[in-house]
């Protein structure tokens, strides 16, 4: 109905241009990056052919795709190993990050005492900490989990703490006025208010837990103890098996993209009814 109406109305040139631009932008948003991507892959292929680059230095995209298919069993098995570490560490980061944040907001003293430790843990490069973890922790999975967790938990902790503390003063007064207990205030007021902040942290942590898992595997994999995607990459590097290296790389980055998209969707669904950030995406 609205479409026929808007067609019936005679538009002045300015509005017509605005409408046309909006339409073009909607199409361009998808088409442009896709075109550039296809062009880049084509150029990659051409460069290999024109310069006669050997496959062990830069394989052609088609070869990478074939390898992805040929080595599927091996690569996807490794992907599962990496995914397991990624999701377990993300889950632990959520539990640890939210748990600590709740603890912090229960007492200013606790926050003042322990927040600096979290910062220290965050700013120290994980690659530098890993040799220590390697010494102290025996279990291979625990080792990788700990490593990925250290990288992923901080954005959740700091965002959730911020969210729990940024509750409307008047709403807090309202809860006081109605005799709310600490637990009620946390459950009915602070946690829902912290939701957008937490979800923002979760989006960052999702990517970081994958990075954490891969880095941990790299460091552990150097001593031949791991079977994740990172160790496949190292292995392929040693054997000058560039197609497999590229295939593993593509799998990792696809995984990262999927994690980001899924978490963005979760965030959008959770906030769409009330939060500004979700409203803008609708328009």
């Amino acid at each position: 109905m609205t479409i026929t109406e808007s067609r019936a109305v005679a538009l002045d040139p300015e509005e017509a241009r605005r409408l046309r631009n909006a339409r073009l932008e909607r199409i361009g948003r998808w088409l442009l990056p896709l075109t550039i991507m296809v062009l880049a892959i084509w150029l990659w292929d051409r460069i290999c052919v024109w310069n006669e680059i050997p496959q062990y230095i830069l394989p052609r995209p088609g070869v990478v795709l074939q390898t992805l298919h040929k080595d599927a069993g091996l690569l996807f098995g490794s992907l599962l190993v990496t995914l397991r570490i990624t999701f377990l560490s993300l889950a632990l980061a959520v539990i640890g990050g939210v748990g600590l944040a709740v603890l912090f907001t229960q007492s200013k003293w606790v926050e003042m005492s322990f927040f600096p430790f979290a910062v220290v843990l965050q700013v120290t490069p994980i690659v530098a900490i890993f040799p220590l973890i390697n010494i102290y922790v025996d279990n291979q999975t625990a080792k990788l989990l700990l490593c990925a967790w250290i990288v992923a938990f901080f954005p959740i902790l700091s965002n959730t703490t911020l969210g729990l503390n940024s509750v409307d003063r008047n709403l807090r007064d309202l809860f006081r006025l109605n005799g709310a207990t600490r637990w009620q205030e946390l459950w009915h007021l602070r946690l829902p208010a912290a939701m957008p902040y937490f979800l923002g942290g979760l989006k960052i942590a999702g990517g970081l837990s994958l990075i954490g898992a891969v880095v941990a595997e790299f460091v552990a994999g150097a001593s031949g103890q791991s079977s994740g995607l990172a160790s496949r990459i190292i292995e392929a590097g040693y054997r000058l098996n560039a197609p497999r290296l590229f295939a593993a790389l593509i799998l990792i980055s696809l995984t990262g993209i999927v994690i980001f998209l899924v978490l963005s969707l979760v965030s959008h669904l959770a906030l769409r009814r009330w939060h500004e950030s979700a409203l803008k995406q609708e328009g």
């Binding site: 409307d168 008047n170 709403l171 309202l174 109605n178 005799g179 709310a180 009620q184 009915h188 009814r273």
Partner: peptide
């Protein structure tokens, strides 16, 4: 329990429905 308070701003829970917002003081009790 004898006072009700209305703030300068509506001060509603943005994530909660109208029903849940009005229910809140009773819910806390």
């Amino acid at each position: 329990d004898c006072v009700g308070f209305v703030f300068q701003e509506p001060t509603l829970l943005p994530w909660a429905s109208v029903f849940d917002n009005v229910w809140l003081p009773l819910r806390l009790r």
